[in-house]
């Protein structure tokens, strides 16, 4: 049974997201009522699926299949670069925040059905040297590109706060 979605809860999550976004040099959409609506959608999906599937995308309901669209999604940063906003426009660029760039609809970048529906990508294991000179593997956050050298990826990305399963082996 998930917690009830009240305006107070939405506001609290909004405040946390806003703080975390600023700390990592991202911006939430400054149109607060719009952004609160997205936060509400995220909380609805948390109740439905157990994770923050993007409110503007159709989730499968299986976490492994939806990993790339768990907010912040794998497509946020490329969309911020190209369009000044992520697909749902929860996150926007500095120019959009400051009104220097108009917010336009962002086309869907996600491959149809998500990456797991595509032909299995060949593993690059053979290209990896295996370990760095220190003997540590390097892990890359697929959302923000954060790299760290440690035996396992961190439980949460210290930059964008996504969970451990959003990391890939980089070296």
């Amino acid at each position: 049974m998930s917690a009830e979605i009240t305006p107070e809860r939405i506001e609290k999550v909004y405040q946390r997201l806003d703080r975390e976004a600023k700390e990592a040099a991202y911006n939430l959409n400054p149109d607060k009522s719009f952004t609160l609506g997205l936060v509400e959608g995220l909380l609805v999906n948390e109740g439905r699926y157990g994770y923050w599937a993007c409110p503007c995308r159709l989730a499968d309901g299986v976490r492994e299949k939806d990993l790339d669209i768990i907010c912040p999604c794998d497509y946020r940063d490329p969309d911020l670069d190209e369009y000044g906003a992520c697909f749902c426009a929860l996150y926007v660029s500095d120019d959009v925040r400051d009104g220097k760039q108009e917010l336009t609809p962002v086309p869907e970048r996600r491959p149809p059905g998500g990456p797991t529906a595509q032909a299995e990508e060949p593993e690059h294991d053979e290209e990896l040297v295996g370990f760095t000179r220190s003997g540590m593997p390097v892990w890359r956050c697929k959302v923000c590109g954060y790299l760290c050298a440690r035996p396992q990826p961190p439980l949460k990305c210290p930059i964008c706060k996504v969970d451990k399963d959003r990391f890939e082996r980089f070296a």
Binding site: F34, G37, L38, E40, G41, L42, V44, P55, C88, A89
Partner: peptide, 9 residues
């Protein structure tokens, strides 16, 4: 649309 989507709304 999706019931959670602001753009749909």
């Amino acid at each position: 649309g999706l019931s959670t989507c602001i753009w749909c709304r």
